[in-house]
Amino acid sequence: MSSSTLTPAGGAPAGEGEHTAQARGRVLPFPITGQEIVLIVVIVALWIALWLGTPAFLTGGSIVPLLVAMAPVALIGIGMTVIIITGGIDVSVASMVMVCAVVVAKAMVDSGISLPVAVLLSMVLGGVLGLVNGVLIAYGRVHAIIITFGTANLFKFVGLRVFGGSTVNGIPDTLDVFGRGAAGRTLGIPHSFLLMLVIAALAWYYLRHTPSGRHLYAIGGDADAARLAGVKVQRRVLSAYVLTGLLTGLAACFVIAQGTSTLAPNVGAGMELSAIAAVVIGGTSIMGGRGSVLGTVLGALLVQTVASGVTQLGWRSQLASLFIGIFILIAVGADLLRQRARRTA
């Protein structure tokens, strides 16, 4: 249609813009959700409050370590987001971090492997563990939480065997390029955070603008309907767990880099819950079918901001748990309200 013949000049471009936005809106949601906007506002407000309330919150010496600390959680969270969108979950990621970290740390101590080999080894190992989860879940037809709960204990056993009842001592500085120290940043920007952001951007594009990315949402919305519509459900689900395994492998390298020169068997403990917390706070529905990695990255940033803020304000350490718990409940509550609104609408 030629708008210039129908409407006077000036109104036309607006009208057309609205039309295309509407047409696109039917296929894709708005690029940023309400929850993500709220998160950005909350994080900005917290940063301003902490800037006013502490001597050095908004300095490189404080923000850089904060970004480094949240990077592995956000990275695992990206994979977890993809999985939760398909209606699944992976509670084995903490054990995967442990297995990857101990194998890579031992290889660095015993054979002095180089940086690329260490990263590759960790990601391949993570990918294999993710493949185990993926195959069992996609073809076993048992809910993901049961399968990954089982593999979490299995992986933990493997990891403890590699540890052999002791710590790994004298880890070399091969991975310091991902660390908190001077070697870990270029022009003040930490490499681990930057790499996580690039991966988040790729994941965002994949989920939003590729057919197979959209299929993941369809599977989470209604797997049977997706299958009838011709989506290769099993293959997509499998790929989500392999992707998470690869990202978890990379995250394990970040964890080694941030740690001390000693690796203890409790490495990674609780990371599955941190990652799920970031995903849920980010607005991804735990029931599947909706969510975005932007929210997850913001969620991870918020959690670390709260943890660091509580320490820098000199408040009691356990208050961080209280605040994060409240954030999770608010996020889940908001998700339930949205679902109810959608059903009645």
Partner: peptide, 14 residues
Amino acid sequence: QAAATQMATDLMNA
């Protein structure tokens, strides 16, 4: 370990 390291960093900033 990771939490201890991050908290020590935050304490130096605080």
